[in-house]
Design a protein around this nucleic acid. Structure first.
Lengths: 154, 154
DNA sequence: GCATGATTGTATGCTCTACTAACGATTTCG
DNA sequence: CGAAATCGTTAGTAGAGCATACAATCATGC
């Protein structure tokens, strides 16, 4: 399978090798994100909620009456992307739009009782998802990891 | 920053706050990934290459003759996803498919001269992209970060 | 050797996310 | 007041991921 001029397809354990790519930080962030994404999707398969949907529900639970633009800014989504997510949540009856009294351009978003219920269920799933993720680190490492990730996205 | 009952929409500098979400590790991974993704897209706007495309070109440059399944395994992509990316690269003339002599089911993938050229240009862009990413860390921090990310995706 | 199952590539379709461009309504500012 | 900026909305484009189904090839066991 391997000769002098060419690398192995896999190491003996069947895990892939990355060659030079292994030195690229962005590459590892993408792989880690993919792994988290896949586990999240499994965890939330029954609830049929995506990461973005949960994030919007979560923020709305803490900030009732927030506008779409505010939600979008927090999650680094543009207006159009925020729209599609809010639309889906509204179609499922998890939130309602109200005209903002202070600014006629804005829609104040509020969770419905169904939305509150979905958020509560989602938080349970998030707990086990986070447990899966955090289990490989010490508390100190987690703090350091989050701090370093913050330096990237802030 | 926060009062007892409710969080502000933004801090004085206009940066969003996350409330409870701030304690979720997966949330920070997703935000960091998004930031890296956006910068990558800007950096590669002229070359019109995506992260996945660059990764495939890169692996193919180091592993000429690799099959689609091998490339997919390395990058944690399923066969269908790998197909679409290989198709695009082939349409642009960056690689060619050859029937594997050792296994009739496999296609041996090879970079074309245009593909080699694109890869060389991509590596230059990767260098500046990585510079942007790494500039906020010390060498020791980078090593720790990559090691921790590896614990997630390995 | 041959039937069976596994692997690989391919094709199709669906979903989610992200971005652009345009438009109307509203607010804000000069 | 008029002009510029903001917010929501709609429409279109695109990448990426996944599931399913099918054909060709390989590997295995009988």
């Amino acid at each position: 399978m391997a000769n002098a001029a060419m690398k192995n397809d896999k190491d003996p354990a069947g895990l892939p090798e990355y060659g030079e790519l292994d030195g690229i930080v962005g590459f590892h962030i993408r792989l880690a994100h993919g792994a988290v994404y896949r586990h999240f999707t499994e965890t939330f398969a029954e609830l049929e909620l995506t990461q973005k949907q949960v994030s919007v529900l979560w923020l709305l639970g803490e900030n009732p009456g927030a506008s779409q633009i505010e939600i979008g800014n927090r999650l680094r989504m543009d207006r159009a992307t925020t729209m599609t997510i809010v639309n889906r949540l509204q179609e499922r009856g998890y939130l309602r739009r109200e005209r903002s009294s202070s600014d006629g351009r804005k829609q104040a978003l509020h969770l419905t009782p169904e939305g509150e219920k979905a958020l509560a269920e989602a938080k349970v799933c998030i707990r086990s998802h986070e447990e899966w993720l955090k289990s490989r680190f010490s508390a100190q490492e987690i703090e350091k990891l989050v701090e370093m990730l913050g330096r990237i996205h802030e």
